[in-house]
Design a protein around this nucleic acid. Structure first.
Lengths: 211, 211
DNA sequence: TGACAATATGACCACGTAGTCATATAATAA
DNA sequence: TTATTATATGACTACGTGGTCATATTGTCA
């Protein structure tokens, strides 16, 4: 956690530091992100930085928790409506909300994606990975629910489906953030939504020709 | 491309350098991989290294092309048999072959995964990404074929399916390399194969309850 | 005003990086 | 043996990194 000194800072100065750190951590992973660059971007001397934060990890945890909290709050209201919906509609809502989030807060979304790919064990564990675990258990909960209701085939491997949904979610996110290295890129929101529908249709109905 | 000097080296010395570089690039991305560490691991002085390779990128391209070529060759024989198989069997064969490859050449598989995640544009473009593009177009070819044969539903979004298969492939690979951050890990080959089947069943038959 | 505490600052440290280059050694040819 | 060429070597440069610390500045209270 940052020192009191940091929170006593005038709002604009504090926000400038946060903004600079968010930009740096959204474009780089923990190791390659540079404190020097953050200081320069925020127009503060190195010494000041270390008056506000104990070290690099301190800042990283602060920024990432920030982004994760933002995302969790953003999704909380749609999740509360889940018990009235079918799993298809739940998933669709989740994906659509994800796209909305990435559009509204692209920086936070990028931070989340960056964190989900973080390799540094120290940094990863320090952020408690509460957010990530939450997402996985959310999918698992949805699957169990849908199975109990008889919505989806009970023979479907829950774990495989959970992983599939998780990777799909990440894929859609990357797509939204235009980070995808694929040649053919989806740009308009309409196209993106129909892309989500295509994915969900595959998962729900399968690709086999039934005729 | 490495200098002639490198190829004139005695086999064991040259292979030691290649091995050291493969290990370093399999555990680190382009930026964080260290020439110093490679030299130490291969027991060669820094000066010698720069007699063999013009720079870091030169080595990176050489090693990655090496790994990609190995993978392409490994898959070539199964792909040649594709025209006699259904798409389900094609995909299953592809995934199984992928698992086999990762088991037989874990280092090469790790290099491939590392490369597919490489963020550095310079390094990425230098390797021509021929391997990656090839994989994507292979999936697309399979999809078109299966559609023409009437094997899979013509209404399925080919592009979405292609992306889905690509991410699934990557997921299975990561799984195999035990790099997955998931709590529940699959270890035995039997479990892994049944996991692949579970995924393919979802994709082909969907998860919707038909009763 | 004077005294004390909170904060601001940038030169500095130890380390790691990619890459260079003059010199030393070995191999080859005359 | 001598001259020439190919290779081996590690100290070196310039730069970037996270982090420190003595000093300078500011704010606050008596």
């Amino acid at each position: 956690m940052p020192q009191e000194t940091f929170f006593n800072l005038p709002d604009n100065k504090r926000n400038l530091i946060i903004s600079a750190a968010m930009h740096e951590f959204s474009k780089n992973n923990y190791k390659t992100a540079s404190i020097n660059k953050i200081c320069k971007k925020a127009n503060i001397p190195k010494g000041s930085f270390y008056q506000y934060f104990t070290d690099k990890l301190d800042l990283y945890v602060y920024i990432m928790s920030f982004a994760i909290e933002k995302k969790v709050k953003f999704f909380s209201d749609v999740i509360s409506k889940f018990n009235t919906l079918t799993m298809f509609k739940q998933l669709r809502l989740l994906f659509v909300k994800g796209i909305e989030f990435a559009k509204k807060y692209p920086l936070y979304a990028e931070l989340g994606e960056q964190f989900s790919k973080e390799h540094d064990e120290l940094a990863k564990s320090a952020v408690i990975k509460a957010g990530d675990k939450q997402a996985q258990s959310l999918f698992m909960q949805m699957i169990c629910n849908a199975k109990m209701k008889g919505e989806i085939d009970g023979n479907v491997d829950s774990f495989a489906l959970c992983l599939l949904l998780k990777t799909l979610n990440s894929t859609v996110n990357e797509y939204m953030l235009e980070k995808s290295g694929n040649a053919c890129c989806v740009y308009s929101e309409e196209e993106l939504l129909s892309f989500v529908d295509s994915l969900l249709k595959i998962v729900f109905y399968g690709i086999l020709n039934k005729t």
